[in-house]
Amino acid sequence: MGKSDMALLSVQNVTMRFGGLVANDRVSFDVPEGALFAVIGPNGAGKTTLFNIISGFFPPSEGQVVFAGDTITGLPQHAVASRGLIRTYQLVQLFKDLTVRENVAVGCHRVTRGGIPAALFTPGWARKQEAEVERRSRELLDFVGLGAQADMAADKLPYGQQRLLEVARALAADPKLLLLDEPAAGLNTQETAALADVIQRVNARGVTVLLVEHDMSLVMKVAQRIAVIDFGKKIAEGTPAEIKAHPDVIAAYLGGTETADA
């Protein structure tokens, strides 16, 4: 591979076996710095497994994940996150008892410091930091369009807005790479469009985005480059236009029988 100095994230020959089932079979791709990259595939293709491996949820059976030049394979999830690889979940995982703004404030954990002593004695830097957390949280809520809901309980938000809150919270961690796990799942057309807009603006802020998605309309609209997975194998990679025209992809999605080995 040896391209890790170029790519922000490099997935190298990742294989994952669950007993006899091969969920990922030697999957490789590179996500360059600043890209908006998508991994797509039909249901059960192994997208979520791959996603969980990249984010450190579990280690792969074989292969490597290289992030910002370091091998992160097998690191626990919080350690992966603290390096700036921040994920969201397919099923929204909000902190329900916290307000919308506090949810985003938790996101600032990675880029702030201080434990019990700082909390007790609030030295000058800690107070300044809290003010900055407050300011940053409000700015990010405005960015995703939830500024007016800042003091609501998070679980009172409609589902589509909960997704946006999750994105704002992830952004608060100042990610180098934002991993979005099927962010459009369960959203209606309007909500998906709003989300697509936010994802593009996130990328425009300079955040590299890796999107794992089932919803083709979202992917084709926002992604610059796409990798397609079917039955655990990468069957194609290219721009949206190339992917749309790729015979294997059409076969995978429409259930064709004459698949050629890629």
Binding site: T88, Q93, F95, L98, V106, G114, A170
Partner: peptide, 23 residues
């Protein structure tokens, strides 16, 4: 505080807390 927010995040969702870099 930052410390308390991390605790309350764990109460809300351990996976999400992990994913934001909270040990």
């Amino acid at each position: 505080s930052r410390f308390g927010r991390a605790l309350r995040a764990i109460a809300g969702s351990e996976p999400a807390a992990q994913a934001l870099g909270i040990n």
